[in-house]
Design a protein around this nucleic acid. Sequence first.
RNA 1: GCGGGCGUGGCGGAAUGGUAGACGCAACGGACUUAAAAUCCGUUGUCCUUGUGGCGUGCCGGUUCGAGUCCGGCCGCCCGCACCA
Length: 855
Amino acid sequence: MSTERYNPREAEPRWQQHWTDNRSFEAKEDPSRPKYYVLEMFPYPSGRIHMGHVRNYTMGDVIARFRRALGYNVLHPMGWDAFGMPAENAAIERGVHPKSWTYENIATMKRQLKSMGLALDWSREIATCDPSYYRHEQAMFVDFIKAGLVERKVSMVNWDPVDHTVLANEQVIDGRGWRSGALVEKRELAQWFLKITAYSDELLTALDGLTRWPEKVRLMQKNWIGRSEGMRFSFALEDTNGKLLNERLTVYTTRHDTIFGASFCAISADHDLARRLSETDEGLASFRREVAALGTSEETIERAEKKGYALGLYARHPFNPEVKLPVYAANFVLMGYGEGAIFGCPAHDQRDLDFARKYDLPVLPVVAPKGTDAAAFTVGTEAYLEKEGDNTILINSQFLDGMGVPEAKAEIAGRMEAMGIGERKVNFRLRDWGVSRQRYWGCPIPVIHCASCGIVPVPKAQLPVTLPEDVTFDKPGNPLEHHPTWKHVDCPACGKPARRETDTFDTFIDSSWYFARFCSPHADVPVAADAAKYWMGVDQYIGGVEHAILHLLYSRFYARAMKATGHFHMDEPFDSLFTQGMVIHETFRTRTGEWVLPADAEQRDGRWVHVTTGEPLEIGGVEKMSKSKKNVVDPDDIIARFGADTARWFMLSDTPPERDIEWTEAGAEKVWRFTQRIWRLVNESAASTDGSDAAQSLELRRAAHKALHAVTEDLAALRFNRAIARVYELTNALQAALGKAEPAAVREAAELLILVSAPMMPHLAEECWQALGCKGYVVDTPWPKADPALVADDQVTIAVQVNGKRRDEITIARGTASKDVEALVLKLESVSRSLEGRAPKKVIVVPDRIANIVG
RNA sequence: GCGGGCGUGGCGGAAUGGUAGACGCAACGGACUUAAAAUCCGUUGUCCUUGUGGCGUGCCGGUUCGAGUCCGGCCGCCCGCACCA
């Protein structure tokens, strides 16, 4: 057979053109057909696509093509998360305008994505930096203001001193800015907030309904929202002389049962009381400065020592007037949670214990395992925390003695409520979402500040508020603030000179509703209801786990906020979520420690050296591909050398999609050879006309239909690596049968091989389809149906065990009755030998699987 | 510290409580070739006394006719959150 090699470089662009000309992937609403919306997290146009994109978009594409073949009306759109700081950094570093930088990147990346042969509907392409997109974002924000979902408050913010902007709590990682890596400082600023906390409970409880989300992601969100049930109550305060003040101290606790173990109270350094007292107490003022300096910095992370400053105030114990609890300002009490004030019970809280030991405060255990002698039970340097299964009771606690913890909590809550000093209260860890950013390349916040009218939303008729293009980046901070004219406008309410808001939105807002915009990307409302009702929710959403909290939580909130303002109809936009693993690669570095690109490393005489310098290289760990470690490969290179199908197939083979996959050159070459093997095999199949072995034909047909059946199930469950293993099996079976099986069987197997591999290698499939002389195109061919009679064998080989150890196997007709199997196995010589003369006590038969003789 | 996940050949990994190691890679042997590459055929968990054999899914124990899978306890690795009262 002298078939020419398959040439992806020639074939792939040709098929891509065919699909484009054919408008194969443009989606139209069609209520008569079942829809399927598959979406991958859209990319930030950073410059070029990376292998992580290749993996992510390949997975989505396989699903899109598979569902389409199954008869679904598939929506598979693509767009650009186009606002963000790298564009401004490019402007600062290279003098390019953020807009042109962004659009050039989009052009490059679009070309790259097209070269992957993705089944995308490009007619729905959106870019979040386009006014036709962000005008709707602004309009919805105005509606959010009216609906009370927006708040402007002065608050302590996380200030990134490198990027000169505010960060949300979610964007501070280990005390550093998520993008700049700079140590975050605390500052007080007036900021715009979206009231995500209004939905805390709702966002939490609705997680239970997201049954097709990874359990891990649901848990992460659950912990992030952080619901806790406790009590808010207040202490009477007195001064050093025992004089009652006309001010009470309110604290939050989840352990009100331990109230008799209280030995101090502590308030945050930012607490209102501490602020006021520091005006006259220089020691306190300096303590407050010290705490502020620590802020969210590294030292805090490394568990700064517990420190406090005694305020000279005492809290009266609500049930024991004899006991006075000294009140401290303390560095470990957070202003943002609960009341910013606590009571300390050292025996049962490690932080409180550390604090008490330092300041020599009493440590009185009040909870102990049942049966413990209360007088003898002490706590040393480790607080006693009850573990699961501990049977604990209250001790040293007057009227609570002998009660269990839940009972004691109920008792205290009841008494405090009766006394009118407190009530049960649910608290959340989740904070409101600060959305103001002091940056240029973002969506302008559509608000005007007027000296007489206050804050005035921009009237919808005046939207969009577009970004000025004539900006400079020669000084730090926000170019919008420096712009000579842009911020000066007349107040829409009174007409007097006023000032535009110069903050822009956090870019997470842009990505919190794009999935809905894709339903009607050209509509003159944010989301056209009919289109959204047809296409939403997203049947399969795919992206990295790194978005498990931020993007996915914001989107869930946004859906609700849009619903509340009439822009959307559902709460949960993503029916099914899949988080794929990263692409990892070996790292190389020189003796001097400089990272080297894999493309510049080569093996000579078993040693790794630099391609041009010949310098010896050390092989480092296999790590996530990153520019800093230079262990990246360029998708363009791979596609140019091997073709898109090879890159796609590699990304799906061997490793389960949720795990990290290691890219290797050798692996890519193997896949490339496999594409040639399929090509050769299909051509040989087309020419195979003289086989006549009926048994081989049946065997091949069985193999083909089994493979089809298995691939169908595996793709539906996103088990791409298993689907691919089944394709290899079919390839092997076809190869073995060539020249022996009848031409019809060979042809059928070849056709099925093409069709089941098509979602993964669409170009090669089309090319093979033509080579085999089939009608039409693979892209228009429905997914085949496996013949059940061929999928199930009529003979099965079952294992025969004696006392759970495999001793033999027998081949019997499928569905043989248990009693017949039993009779059969008891006659086996291997069985009687293994029984060593004992009589069989019992025989367990699992039909078509196994027989186990107990004796 | 809290929460979660994972430990299977030389490697990536298969395995509804039912024949552990599918499939791929690597390695080895052979065919073809002047030679190499490519391709094709075969072997490959491990041990021994090579059998109709023993052992084997991180370690220890349990449930079961039967455990990689379920339960309990360790060990190791990975991830998320982290002074949240």
